[in-house]
Design a protein around this nucleic acid. Sequence first.
DNA 1: GCCAGACGATAACATTTGTTATCAAATGAA
DNA 2: TTCATTTGATAACAAATGTTATCGTCTGGC
Lengths: 191, 191
Amino acid sequence: MFNQFRSKFPLSEEKWNQYMGYFNRIEVPAKTTLLEEGEISKKLFVIEKGCIRVWFNHNGKDLTSQFFFENQSVASIESFMKKFPSPVFVETIEPSVLWWIHKNDVDTIIEEIKEIPELRDRLIDMLFQRTFDYMKHFFSFIKDSPAQRYQSLIEEKPQIVQRVPQHYIASYLGVSTVHLSRIKSKLLREK
Amino acid sequence: MFNQFRSKFPLSEEKWNQYMGYFNRIEVPAKTTLLEEGEISKKLFVIEKGCIRVWFNHNGKDLTSQFFFENQSVASIESFMKKFPSPVFVETIEPSVLWWIHKNDVDTIIEEIKEIPELRDRLIDMLFQRTFDYMKHFFSFIKDSPAQRYQSLIEEKPQIVQRVPQHYIASYLGVSTVHLSRIKSKLLREK
DNA sequence: GCCAGACGATAACATTTGTTATCAAATGAA
DNA sequence: TTCATTTGATAACAAATGTTATCGTCTGGC
């Protein structure tokens, strides 16, 4: 699973093996809850196969805020980093093969990584990049209609449209399931 | 201006004075453009007095994405960090007193700060915090109506409601100026 | 194979939001 | 002051979006 990334990390064989030893492989069915709302996140997941969504309950409605696929890492990030009760659920969409690592071990790795300039800079870059991604997503809500947001999703994140049930996508785009269905049928008719 | 922050930075008197020497004070009228769209951002601004907005043009419409007030630092962050052409304008709303520092000097400071564990961790924390702020703002678009977003703004960022012209706030909330006006008058009538 | 539940399309209607136009008040520059 | 510009409220109408309900299809488990 992780050997494909080996060459990207300037670590000794011992360190690499130590870090790899922290990970645990699990296989779970679809709709498995990996983290409950209110719980404090202790595990970071990496997806070998499958897909995961992050969602929360608002006035009885199931609202999805993020999707994750193969080779991405997933956690309720604020809960995981700051030990807050998680505002969100983390749940598999498809049957999945996951690797998880305990927060204590992540902390160990980060403390050590911070002393390696190349990796420390990479960490900081990742944080910036994530911020940029959120900014872009936020911009789309003030400049685009739901139909345009759906178009962008098809072009920029086709995996979501192809693999995720439509009613999860609807809340991610900020519209009702009925309206998303309308958007799709209008797109078809216009082709 | 910066002496109020002196105690927060474990720096020698020399380093502190060196860093402070990088800053330049300017006074500008309202509606001064500090950065044009397409330009590569070279200056980071800190606001001593006044207020600034970040906006972009979309199909002829003026859309505001952020507001900044006293003691905050402002830049087109992606352009400043990665030397991309800026996707946004940066413009004063009120007559303002600003301190700016050149990107080269910021780079120097960051390189040096990264070697001081306490300050490096603070930098990483700031990046996390900014990401959380964007996440929260994005969440509000999938869970709240425009009227609820306006209510939250009153409660959480009263400065914006008090000091910023209403038509800038409208696009920040993702609604038309007419509709924001309706939201306000409905709030008044219901009290 | 059978069945319950999940998923998605559609219609009818209600509500929200945008658009355009007009007017009034506030503001700033000469 | 005076006048043009900016700002904001409101009305009337159009368009977008939500809600509720119904139906058909598909799927997974037994």
